[in-house]
């Protein structure tokens, strides 16, 4: 990252850190925390989907695995939050490898459907493996997260915890994608043939992207479990996977900032459409259709296009 990027990063994190001090109500902080969690998931998904060009409609499954792993470990075995978090990420990574390797040869619609199928199988497991997952009722009273004796039991404290995780996740993600190493993902998307001709191991690259994304989804899932303190299979259905994908597309697939903007827009769009009551999802669907037609590059992509046009006109 350049000095300018670092400056922006510190500015945004500090600005967000001030939010709880402005007397923001707990619900608003909860929503903002959710934006952070979605941003973590979709940073990973953007690497797979926006940069490497592999679709996944099953990421709710990794999110669920993270949430359940940490939830069960901390609640039933009394493990500390850190252990739950590490286990959540590790299990999501293992599952990512198990799914990622066989799905290497699938593309496009086939991959989309295969990932949906996988997601549904995980959801069925959550519903039917009752003595571990609590079945359809899920798991409640998940402990507040605690680190080194400090318990994050207020909306403020949880917000700061999630802000920290999001900021670190962002740093690693941005470092990767702004490095020369990051170009190999786009190379695989644009021309797998040429990438191979330049010495890039295409399969390995795809798996790296996929596993990176499942690690992020697992991490976000664990945060989600401890933020809500209640998880049930309903929160991890196909609609949630679709939601993740939409965030990436609406934000701008293959743009660094897309997941952040997309998460904020989608979460707040949904919140603000709630005033429309029964009509809210109807309008949401409509907005999506319109966005695809008029903003195919997403918010960040379209903004970049405008800026570059404006610069060219001035030059």
């Amino acid at each position: 990252m350049t000095a300018r990027h670092k400056g922006w990063f510190i500015f945004v994190v500090l600005a967000l850190a001030v939010v709880p001090k402005l007397g923001t109500n707990p619900y608003a902080l909860h929503v903002l925390s959710l934006v952070g969690i979605y941003a973590i998931v979709t940073m990973g998904l953007n690497l797979v989907f926006g940069y490497t060009g592999q679709i996944s409609l099953g990421h709710a499954a990794y999110f669920a695995v993270g949430a359940y792993t940490s939830g069960i470990l901390t609640l039933q075995l009394g493990a500390p939050f850190a252990v739950g978090m590490i286990a959540a990420v590790a299990l999501a990574v293992v599952l990512g490898l198990l799914v990622g390797i066989p799905s290497l040869k699938l593309e496009g619609s086939y991959l989309a459907m295969a990932t949906i199928g996988f997601g549904e199988i995980v959801k069925m497991l959550l519903v039917n493996w009752e003595h571990v997952t609590g079945g359809p009722a899920g798991i409640s009273r998940i402990p507040h997260p605690g680190i080194l004796g400090f318990t994050f039991n207020t909306a403020d404290a949880k917000f700061y915890l999630i802000l920290t995780f999001s900021a670190v996740a962002w740093l690693l993600y941005a470092n990767l994608l702004m490095s020369h190493y990051g170009t190999r993902f786009i190379a695989v998307r644009d021309s797998a043939k040429a990438a191979a001709g330049m010495g890039i191991d295409v399969r390995r690259t795809k798996i790296q992207a996929f596993v990176f994304s499942t690690a992020y989804a697992g991490m976000a899932g664990a945060l989600y479990a401890h933020l809500n303190r209640y998880i049930a299979p309903d929160a991890f259905h196909l609609g949630e996977s679709i939601n993740f994908l939409l965030i990436v597309v609406v934000g701008g697939m293959g743009t660094l900032l897309g997941p952040l903007m997309g998460s904020a827009i989608i979460v707040y769009l949904r919140e603000s459409l709630l005033v429309l009551k029964d009509y809210n999802m109807l309008i949401f669907g409509l907005i999506l259709m319109v966005l695809m037609v008029f903003m195919p590059r997403g918010l960040v992509g379209s903004a970049q296009l405008l800026v570059s046009k404006w610069r060219r006109r001035r030059a």
């Binding site: 679709i55 619609s109 989309a112 994908l245 999802m281 109807l282 949401f284 669907g285 195919p296």
Partner: peptide
Amino acid sequence: LFRANAGHPGRLHILIICSTIGTSIFLQN
């Protein structure tokens, strides 16, 4: 969508998936 992204088959594919998902949310509701 097809007209605007004919030169980008990969992107078109994804946009169609998202647009049809939007349609299905709309119709469901």
